[in-house]
Simulated assay, not measured.
Amino acid sequence: MQLEHYISDLLYRYDCVTIPEFGSFLTQRQSAQVHDSTNAFYPPKKTLSFNEQIQTNDGLLIRYIADVEKIPFETALQNLSKRVKSLKSYLAEGETLSFENIGDLTFNAESKIEFNPSYHLNYLTDAFGLSQFVSPAVTREVYKEEEEVETIEKVIPLTITPEKRNTTSFFKYAAIAVVALGVAGFGFNNYVNNVDQHNQIAQEEANTQLDSQIQEATFVISNPLPAITLNVNKQSGNYHIVAGAFREEENSDKKVSQLQDQGFKARKIGKNRHGLHQVVYASYTSREDAFNALNAIRKEQNKDAWVLIKAID
């Protein structure tokens, strides 16, 4: 019984997977993180833990084993009970239980199970295809000129010296200056408006010419090829065996061609929420058929393949 593989499959979709009479593996979502000293960016993930106190059989793991191995529920329960007795015996003898892509279990001095999680897989499907990366440190430089400007920037008041002047003449010239400034401002605003209007008209003309050129380049074909009718069998089903996700669509197209050459009904099923192009080996309407195919693909092709349950138009 490939118990760790069954647990691993369920951890992608559930936050708690219980091994009856043994304990439970728990997951908790962790946000993306940045390491302060190394400037490394880590994508969001599910952190793993183990709780020996949660041993009540919720039927999740046994039903999954029964579905995959095509055996009755009672038979799956008996097989799992035998495996649990064997696991407890190994721990009692001081051995370490290693669950692939999950972690290691050992007994401590108080005969309690200690869990050391594995970090080889990220069980958060939303972050599928994302990996850590290191960014150079961001340095900020403040120029001396900016500091000087902030220091000497002041509002200079307008003052009138206490000289004897002709009050009437002063206000007369001041009124003329205000009118002149208003006329100049009006003219400047008109000039700015005319420039904006000119730029808008020129932009519209350029867009019109560009659209015309694009249409001619796209749709005017001097020697068209004869029409070809293709009969395509559209795949259907909500169970999709994921082969990978790619940031560049060209790479996803290459992967589809590669899998199709190997005999798979591969196709692209669109982007995930991170903008990555997802490629699947095939899609199935039956859950049983999907997981049977998944087991074969993991043994012969890709051990990291997994089943995405999603309705796709």
Rank of each mutant, 00 (worst) to 15 (best):
Q2P: 13
L3H: 02
Y6H: 12
Y6S: 12
S8P: 03
R13K: 15
V17S: 01
T18E: 12
G23A: 07
T27Q: 03
Q30R: 01
A32D: 09
D36W: 10
N39P: 00
A40E: 04
Y42T: 11
F50C: 05
N51R: 04
E52D: 03
I54L: 13
I54Q: 14
I62Q: 02
I62V: 05
R63V: 01
I65S: 01
I65N: 01
D67G: 15
K70V: 13
L77Q: 15
N79W: 00
N79S: 10
S81D: 10
K82R: 14
R83Y: 15
Y90G: 11
Y90L: 13
L91P: 14
A92S: 12
G94S: 08
L97N: 09
S98T: 10
E100Q: 03
E100D: 08
N101K: 03
L105A: 05
F107A: 00
N108M: 07
I113W: 00
E114N: 14
F115P: 04
F115R: 03
N116L: 10
Y123W: 04
T125V: 07
A127T: 00
F128Q: 15
S131V: 12
S131N: 13
F133I: 11
S135E: 14
A137M: 08
E141K: 09
Y143M: 03
K144E: 12
E146D: 07
E150L: 02
T151P: 03
K154W: 05
V155H: 11
L158D: 11
T159Q: 13
I160D: 11
T167A: 14
S169T: 06
F170I: 04
A175P: 08
A175G: 10
G182R: 07
V183P: 01
F186H: 08
F188R: 13
N189D: 10
N194W: 03
N194I: 01
Q200D: 06
I201W: 09
Q203T: 09
Q213S: 08
I214M: 05
F219R: 06
V220A: 12
I221M: 03
I221P: 04
S222K: 15
P226E: 09
T229M: 05
G237W: 13
N238F: 10
A243K: 08
F246W: 11
E249P: 11
K254D: 04
Q262M: 15
F264C: 10
R267Q: 15
K268A: 07
G270D: 07
L276A: 01
L276T: 02
H277T: 08
S283E: 11
S283Q: 09
S283L: 11
S286W: 04
E288F: 10
N292A: 13
N292W: 09
A293L: 00
N295W: 03
I297N: 06
R298I: 04
K299D: 07
I312V: 15
D313A: 14
